[in-house]
Each structure stands twice: as structure tokens, then as C-alpha cells.
Design a protein around this nucleic acid. Structure first.
Lengths: 220, 220
DNA sequence: TGACATTAGTTGCTGCGTGTTACTTATTCC
DNA sequence: GGAATAAGTAACACGCAGCAACTAATGTCA
């Protein structure tokens, strides 16, 4: 928790944009500050300390168990922050939605956040882009899921990150070819429909790597 | 150039990692500070000012003409900075190596930099990763080149960013299919060998976008 | 109980993109 | 004129992606 109310103008904060996936939408964890306001978790940066480690400590502090993936976001100095800090460095983390929600906090859809200060809103809005930037390099989608998951859940996570629907058959074939997921013996019945087999993340082969150039840019 | 020698402990700097490609290697622009030391260009962050705009101003200040592409890097608070600033936010820019080198500065291969402070070294070392992160989304490789270039030069730029050789025929086919480059009437004779046709960046079709999932992650 | 809806998972076809190999074209150097 | 060098092209094979249609296993409801 930790948001010393001492105003240190000129200092910097480290803000945590903790994401999970619920019902196919990206959610962000919002906590209640000492002053009773809804805010993203944050701490003041301490001189000389590694920012990412501080962010991980904060995440552990809040969730109680650390988070499986995190990446630095885009620092921002404009707009208002709860602390009036001169500068804020966001860290974007992901975790499974199945973990218990920490006390005093709640998940909000990133496109339907409660009122935050402009700067925290901007950092939350930038989270999806940060995740997208990393997903081709890091198994972000897997980290949004619990250790054991169905292929439909995995596909939903990818669709969420990519922002577009994927083809079931193609998705599964490509996944199998990449040796990234390993089937377990368990099956889960989700209510209606056929039960789904459970998988676990297990990156086996490191295909030392030829992958063709990507000329189909997204942003111009 | 602007690096006020006033020490403001607790403040933040914006550091510029300006990159270009020379002889197939990534180079970084290093300037000479007022104190006569070799440093990356930097300025102090001003409260409330947009970081990226400040970085663009710095780039324009140094090159005299602005740069074609820039992206925020990973903020760092550990290690030593020339100013002893508490925190530094790098911005990674690219430009063509054919532009005149600004007075008082010089290009160094990123893997053979002169002695910098540990923090500036770390920021320079992180530049390539930042470029790689963005190259699937933004035409970074094109921005490393002058407005008019040969396909071999473009391929070299991609090879530099990807860190591996590409196939000539495949590269050209894929490029043509993406409608990203447009041939000009000019040809350039580079000395020995057949002259090469010159192309210009011209992203025509915005293929609104189906591109398959990337399961072949790089980092584990 | 049996038809229907729903979701998971698979298979075969087709076509495009990629890797590969080999070839042609245009220039400089000797 | 011939060798060397680099740009550019053509043809083929194969793998992978999109598509459609199918099977399998469960719940729902009349």
C-alpha cells in the first residue's frame, strides 16, 4: 500500500498498472488510497534504487504473492498525479484473474475506469499498447492466465491483446507447432458444452529463430 | 545543447540515444559536454512538460533539423549519470547516416562506445532492444535510411535490427506485397557491381489487418 | 427420453508466402 | 575481353493460414 502523504514536489513515483483478463476484457486493479480515493497503486521512487525491483516489491506488497510478468511503461511528466509528483514511471504487470482480489482493491475494465487523476488514467490507457509491444517477444498472453488453462481461454487472451478475433483451428495448429503449451490429463467442464482439456505453459524448443520479416506494420 | 551544470539532486534528465546505421552496424551519437567529457545529449526535465516533446526539441537542437522517428526507452534510476540526477528517461531516436554529423559530436558503434557513465551506457545498450520492440509496429528500419535508398540498404537495416541475415528474394517479395516502398526512376552505382534502383518509403495500402499470431517468442 | 443448443476439438482442401536454388543483367577492375 | 561483384528475377517445393465441414461431449428443455 504505502503512499506516504508527504508531498515531495520534484520527486518521481512508480505506478503499477496491474492487468488481468475477465470476460474477454482487460481489467486494471484499482486500490483505495489512505485519503479514501481510488487510485492506481504507487510508491515514491527512492534515489538509486532499481525502478523495476521497486515496482515488483510494490506488486508483491499488494497481491501478496508477486506477479508472473511485468514490463516498464512510458514515463510521463505532464497531467496531474495523485501526489503532484513531477514525474511518474508506470510498470505494467499481468496476473491471472483467478487469483483472489487483494483486500481494499477492485478490478475495473480498462475502458470503464472509475475517476482517476489524468496522469494515472493516461498510464492505464497506455497499458494495452505496452502489452502489445511485448507479446511477440514475451509470453504475455500466458501470464494473463492461471498456470493451467484451456485453449479457448488462451485464444481469448490473444484476441484481447491483438484486438481481433482469431481462427480456432489455425490458432491451435500454430500453437502446437510452437511447442509452447503442454496438455495435462485434466479436463474442465465449464457448464454447457463439451469439457475442455487443460494445458500448461511449457516452452520446450527454442527454435533458434528464423521468423520472417514483418512488413505489415500496424501504426503508420 | 543545454546541459546546465547546476546540480539538481532529485531531478530527472531526459537523455537522447540517437541512432544511425553505418556499415551495417548501429551507431550512437555522442557529444562533448561543457566540461569536455563525452556524453549522450541530455537535458533536465521541466515540471509538467511533456517528456517526448522535450526530447524532440533536444534532438532538433542538436541535429538542427529534427529526426524522423523517436520512441521512449526504459527509465532508469540506478547507476551513475553525468549529472547525478536521481532518474533518467531515455528517448531512442533514429536518423539517416547520410545527414551531416552535428558539430562537436561523433558517431560511435553501439558495441564500441567511448567511456560514458554507467547509466548512459545502460541506456545506449538498451536502444537496440527498444528499436526491436517497435519495428513490427513502426517503420523503424525505413527511418534509419535517407528518403531515397536501395533495397540492399533497406535489407541491411532490417538485418541490423533483427540481428540475423535475411534472404534477398524473400525479402523483396514480401516488401512488394506490403506496398511499403515505391520505386523511383533513379539508379545509383555504388562502385563495383550493377547499379541499384532507388526506392522511397510510401506506405500505400493499410491492410486493415489480419496477421497471424506470433507464437515463436524470442525471449523465454 | 429425445431433439436441440452449445462448446471443444479435428480433418481435409486450397492458396498464398517463404526458403532455396539457380539464373540473368549491369557495372568495375585488370 | 574476361573475371569479379553486386542487383535483380524466375521457378519450384513446401509449410502454414484461412476456410468449411465434420465429430464429440456436455447441458437444456419440452
Amino acid at each position: 500500500m504505502s503512499s506516504p502523504k508527504s508531498r515531495r514536489r520534484g520527486g518521481a513515483t512508480i505506478d503499477l498498472v496491474l492487468c488481468s483478463a475477465r470476460a474477454g476484457r482487460l481489467h486494471v486493479l484499482v486500490v483505495r488510497s489512505a485519503a479514501g480515493k481510488l487510485v492506481l497503486p504507487f510508491v515514491w521512487s527512492v534515489d538509486g534504487e532499481a525502478l523495476e525491483q521497486t515496482a515488483r516489491d510494490l506488486a508483491k506488497d499488494i497481491t501478496g504473492h508477486g506477479i508472473p510478468w511485468m514490463a516498464p511503461g512510458v514515463a510521463i511528466a505532464s497531467k496531474k498525479h495523485p501526489t503532484d509528483a513531477a514525474l511518474s514511471v508506470p510498470f505494467v504487470g499481468v496476473m491471472s484473474a483467478t487469483m483472489p482480489t487483494p483486500g481494499g482493491s477492485a478490478w475495473y475494465p480498462v475502458d470503464a475506469l472509475p475517476t482517476l487523476t489524468a496522469r494515472q488514467k493516461a498510464m492505464a490507457d497506455g497499458a494495452l499498447e505496452t502489452l502489445r509491444l511485448h507479446m511477440d517477444v514475451s509470453p504475455v498472453a500466458f501470464r494473463l492466465l492461471p498456470p493451467v488453462f484451456t485453449l479457448s481461454e488462451l485464444q481469448q487472451a490473444y484476441e484481447l491483446l491483438l484486438g481481433r478475433p482469431l481462427h480456432k483451428a489455425s490458432f491451435r495448429r500454430a500453437l502446437q507447432a510452437a511447442y509452447l503449451a503442454e496438455p495435462t490429463d485434466e479436463w474442465r467442464s465449464e457448464g454447457r458444452g463439451r469439457p475442455a482439456q487443460l494445458f500448461r505453459f511449457s516452452p520446450r524448443k527454442r527454435r533458434g529463430g528464423h521468423r520472417s520479416v514483418r512488413f505489415d506494420l500496424i501504426g503508420h
